[in-house]
Simulated assay, not measured.
Amino acid sequence: MASFDHPMFKPLWVRIALVAFCFLWAGFEVFTTKSFLWAAIFAAAGGYAGYHLLYKYTPPAGKP
């Protein structure tokens, strides 16, 4: 589905920021708009991204 080996995801702060954004947006949807469907979608995206970018991540192979 997604390519998590893109060089953009190499810095740890980028990976953390992406996951945090998804969960913060899910919270925004719950507390401001009461849209639980969109909150669930963003929370699921944050969980998926967190699993692949923080737990299972391996840096891409560098140039030889």
Rank of each mutant, 00 (worst) to 15 (best):
H6C: 01
A40N: 07
H52D: 03
W38S: 12
F23S: 05
W38N: 12
F42M: 10
T32A: 06
S3V: 08
T32D: 06
Y57D: 04
P11I: 00
A17D: 12
W25T: 10
K56W: 02
K10P: 04
L24R: 14
C22V: 00
P59L: 01
P64L: 02
V19E: 08
G27Q: 15
P59C: 01
K10S: 08
F28G: 12
P64K: 05
T33M: 12
H52N: 11
A20K: 15
S35K: 15
H52Y: 12
T33S: 15
V14Y: 09
F31H: 14
R15I: 00
H6P: 01
S3G: 10
A44C: 09
H6E: 05
K10I: 12
A2K: 13
A39I: 07
F4M: 03
S3Q: 09
A45C: 12
A20I: 10
L24H: 07
A2F: 10
I16T: 07
E29G: 06
E29Y: 14
V19P: 15
W25S: 09
L12Q: 13
F42C: 07
F4Q: 04
P59S: 05
M1Y: 09
A40I: 07
G62N: 04
P60Y: 01
A45S: 10
W25H: 14
F42Q: 10
A2I: 04
H52C: 03
S3L: 04
D5N: 08
A17Y: 08
A20D: 11
G50V: 02
M8G: 04
F23E: 06
L37I: 13
F28Q: 11
A2E: 10
P11S: 00
Y55Q: 03
K56N: 07
G47F: 11
S3H: 14
A17W: 06
L53T: 03
W25N: 11
V30A: 12
A49V: 03
K10G: 00
V30S: 09
W13V: 08
S35G: 11
